[in-house]
Design a binder for these strands. Structure first.
Length: 270
DNA sequence: CGCACCCCCTGCCGGC
DNA sequence: TGCCGGCAGGGGGTGC
């Protein structure tokens, strides 16, 4: 579920409740996430204060007052919610963190594809192994040009490779490719410099617009206060197979590769 | 090295 | 109504 815009929205919505706040107690109800939550997880967290909240790609970085980082990935169905401490528990509430301000942070994740770990900056970087931030200065047409040379991969695969650029998932890959006028199945190395430039511009524009609309809620994505996003109402191609293209009225198509659907307009995208 | 394929896990939806 | 297959925003491993 959550790609960069959703994780950024979660970060912003949690910040007022978590920044500068102490961690009182931690309860692990189900440690079996993508990787098991470590035995010393609660011990490393208890008594710490959250200095600030950051984000890299689809990962949340919670900086602790002892220099460690609490890393959280939401997988497909993960939710982080701040609530009153006495709230009722639900199925798939795997981790509870009780805070010094009387609130509770609840991690719910039905599919358990999420990840939660604590480590030094170097250890965390090794876990995430991320490329540049798409909204940062380092993501330029020159950078993407170099990453698309001499490969047989499709442009969608390159854009979704977190080691190249961090945070683009299946929704925003389809949306930005539409905006740039490039077919998902296009072999990356055949792109012209102009097309690469359009892709970088489209990436930044789509991600910024999605953040402005607080992300996309298809089924279960919610921000830190349980609120839905609004960008799903602005999809141009994603999940719109058979519907008319907003520019040319051609039918939007869906193609599957690597088990993932790509949505595109066969006329507007080349 | 790239890539096709499978896996992890639960829930939902459509077809029969 | 119930069952079954397909599919879902994530990442990772394997064998070719």
């Amino acid at each position: 579920m959550p790609e960069l815009p959703e994780v950024e929205t979660v970060r912003r919505s949690l910040e007022p409740f978590l920044k500068g706040v102490a961690i009182r107690t931690v309860a692990i109800r189900e440690p079996r996430l993508r990787r098991p939550v470590a035995d010393n997880f609660a011990e490393l967290l208890t008594g710490r204060t959250i200095a600030k909240l950051g984000r890299r790609g689809k990962y949340l970085y919670l900086y602790l007052d002892d220099g460690n980082i609490w890393l959280i990935h939401l997988g497909m169905t993960g939710q982080l919610l701040v609530e009153e401490s006495a709230g009722e528990l639900l199925p798939h509430d795997h981790v509870l963190v009780f805070l010094g301000n009387g609130r509770r942070l609840r991690y719910n994740d039905p599919r358990r594809f999420g990840l939660m770990t604590i480590g030094t900056a170097a250890e965390i970087d090794e876990v995430t192994a991320l490329g540049v931030e798409p909204l940062g200065r380092a993501f330029t047409s020159r950078y993407l040009w170099e990453k698309t040379r001499g490969t047989r991969r499709t442009i969608k695969d390159v854009l979704m490779d977190q080691r190249v650029v961090a945070g683009i998932g299946n929704i925003y890959a389809s949306e930005l490719l539409f905006r740039a006028g490039v077919q998902p199945s296009r072999i990356a190395t055949t792109l012209t410099p102009a097309a690469v430039e359009r892709l970088v511009e489209a990436t930044k524009a789509v991600l910024r617009e999605a953040i402005r609309h607080r992300g996309s809620s298809i089924s279960d994505y919610r921000d830190g206060e349980g609120k839905r996003g609004g960008f799903q109402d602005r999809f141009r191609v994603y999940d719109r197979e058979g519907q008319p293209c907003s520019k040319c009225q051609s039918r939007i198509r869906r193609e599957i590769r690597g088990g993932r659907s790509a949505f595109f307009c066969p006329r507007c995208q080349r």
